[in-house]
């Protein structure tokens, strides 16, 4: 009725380029956010006070401002401050990573701190250094707790990567905008874009739910 399949068939190549952009943006940002998030999480739990402050400031600041603001800052503010002009796609990755790493840092910190304190003390008194205790005792347990929230952040990344379009970086949303400029069939164009998003996100969110249930069952058995 309102939907014209010709929009899909004639512009399938663009939708697929966009889909590739969205997948690349989400995967690269997830890896980068995990690395940055892990560093910030370590800052937050070290006994060194100034590092704690930096970690806390980072998490609280970036969790509480909009991604859109960060994206515009990378587009306009960063080149003015540093003279560095990034390729649009890299601008997008930078914005997503800065934002998402704050949430991942928090998930990692919560995971590590959920491991009972006694275990750290036991490990230290059995002769392990702080680093060794972290590596061999605390982190392996924390990882299990961190995986479900990480999955959720990945889902958010797929959705949030749609801000690439305002940076003129090629993702699904940007390609949809371009298709729309050609077809003027806004309704059909974005319905198909939505469909491509769902192809990515629905399996992802079912996977996450599965992981969450499994980790809850594990906790249930232990308790």
């Amino acid at each position: 009725m309102f939907i014209h399949f010709s929009v899909l068939t004639e512009h399938l190549d663009r939708y697929l380029i966009g889909l590739g952009g969205t997948v690349a943006a989400s995967v690269i940002s997830l890896i980068a956010s995990f690395i940055l998030g892990a560093i910030i999480a370590v800052f937050r739990i070290t006994p060194v006070k100034p590092l704690q402050w930096i970690g806390t400031a980072y998490v609280e600041f970036f969790r509480n401002i909009p991604l859109m603001l960060i994206a515009f800052f990378v587009l306009v503010g960063l080149p003015l401050l540093t003279g560095a002009v990034l390729v649009p796609f890299v601008s997008g990755l930078t914005a997503l990573t800065v934002y998402t790493s704050a949430f991942i840092a928090e998930a990692i910190r919560a995971g590590i701190q959920a491991v009972p304190k006694g275990q750290m003390e036991a490990a230290r008194s059995s002769g392990l250094t702080y680093i060794q205790a972290m590596r061999h005792v605390i982190i392996p347990q924390a990882v299990k707790l961190v995986i479900p929230p990480l999955g959720n952040q990945f889902l958010n990344l797929v959705k949030n990567s749609s801000i690439f379009t305002i940076l003129s970086a090629s993702d699904l949303m940007y390609q949809a905008d371009l298709i729309n400029s050609d077809t003027f069939d806004t309704f059909s164009t974005y319905i198909f874009a939505a469909l491509f998003y769902l192809i990515l996100t629905i399996p992802l969110s079912f996977g996450i739910r599965h992981l969450e249930q499994r980790s809850q069952n594990v906790k249930g058995v232990e308790a």
Partner: peptide
């Protein structure tokens, strides 16, 4: 499972 940006765009345009 959809980006909110897409929903806003859709509602208005």
């Amino acid at each position: 499972n959809l980006p909110l940006l897409l929903i806003i765009f859709f509602t208005y345009f």
